[in-house]
Each structure stands twice: as C-alpha cells, then as structure tokens.
C-alpha cells in the first residue's frame, strides 16, 4: 500500500513537472536509476552504468536547451505515461531483489518498449522541434533500458551518439523566436 502511494506520488510529481524541459531530465534520471539498480543487483557495475548516467546528463543538457526555445505544452500525454511506467520500473527494481530478478527484468523490458512507443508516438504528433526532441529523447531512454537488459554495448554507444546529435540539432535551432518550424 505504501509502495502504491509512493508510486502515485511519483507519477503526480512527474505529470506536474513536465511542462517544459523537466520531462526529459526526470525521465532520464529514472532510466539511469533503473539501469544502475539492476546492474547493482546483478553485481556487475561496469560501463553500462557510466553510459546510463552519461545519457541522463546529456538529456539534462537537452532540457536546459529546451528552456530557451518556446513551445506549447500540448503533446506530452504520451511522455507522461512512459514516465509513470519508468517510475514503476524503478520501484520494482528497489522492491524486488533476490529471487524475482527475472520478473523485474521482464518489467524493465516492458517499460523500455512502452517508453519507445510512447516517445515515438509523441514525436509523431509533435508540431514543434522541442516536443519532437522530447519524444525522441524518451524513445532513446527506452532503447537504453532494453540495451542494458540485453547487455549490448554497441546499442548503448549508438544511443549516446544519438543523444549528442539531438543536442547539436537543438543547439543549431535559432533561439529568439523559434518553434515555428
């Protein structure tokens, strides 16, 4: 019961904080916590954790850039759903240690898929560049979760490169009165 209440609190905090650049940062932090906790539970803390934390940092940079580009707050429902699922996955990593590792891994995979689908859906219906980048960042979080689950360093590297590319693209966008692309 306490856990459920905590989860609802987390989801509420997410849905109120996602109006501007906070969404990707929060989502990336959840993803990094999830990857690090699962790795720590398996006893294999390695480059995957570093890459996940680095990805969260890159999304933090993306969120800071988003603050400077004006955008409407219409297309965030899909991101919120994915963010709620990410929080539940983090909670599951915290709670279920030990014999139910398989189940948490499966939940992590499902969360990754949901984040990909919600992120790409959000990117498909987005009008401006900010919402588009937020959706794609959410999808990249999902791919990172799945790659950490499948232990694939190649895909993790691709995700990092894609996040750097998103940062570059948003940095080249004009700051003054953008958002009309």
């Amino acid at each position: 019961m306490l856990v459920l209440l905590f989860g609802v609190l987390v989801i509420l905090s997410l849905s109120t904080s996602g109006a501007r650049g906070g969404g990707p940062v929060w989502h990336g932090a959840c993803m990094a916590a999830c990857v690090c906790l699962s790795r720590w539970g398996l006893g294999r803390v390695g480059p995957a954790c570093i890459m996940a934390v680095g990805l969260a940092g890159l999304f933090g940079l993306l969120g800071v850039q988003m603050l400077h580009v004006p955008a409407g707050a219409r297309e965030r429902s899909g991101l919120r759903l994915a963010g709620g699922l990410a929080c539940i996955a983090v909670l599951a990593q915290v709670i279920m240690q030990g014999p139910q590792v398989d189940m948490t891994a499966r939940l992590m995979g499902m969360t990754g898929l949901a984040a990909i689908l919600c992120g790409v859906w959000g990117a498909c219906i987005a009008r401006g560049p900010v919402a588009l980048c937020a959706g794609l960042a959410c999808g990249l979080d999902g791919v990172m979760l799945l790659a950490a689950r499948a232990d694939s360093l190649l895909v993790m590297g691709e995700v990092i490169i894609a996040a750097i590319g998103l940062n570059i693209l948003l940095a080249t966008h004009p700051r003054s009165h953008g958002g009309a692309a």
């Binding site: 990909i116 990117a123 560049p129 791919v143 894609a162 692309a181």
Partner: peptide, 23 residues
C-alpha cells in the same frame, strides 16, 4: 537557421523508425 522543415521531418521519421526497429 538550423534544420529546415524537411530536415525535422527526416529526423522524426528516421530516428523514430530506428528506435522502434531497435525495440
């Protein structure tokens, strides 16, 4: 002026499709 309109569309379709395919 950054990416043009078609460029954003290419980014949306290309990166979104690659994410879905990887999943």
């Amino acid at each position: 002026r950054g990416l043009d309109r078609d460029g954003w569309q290419v980014l949306r379709m290309g990166l979104g499709g690659l994410l879905v395919a990887q999943g």
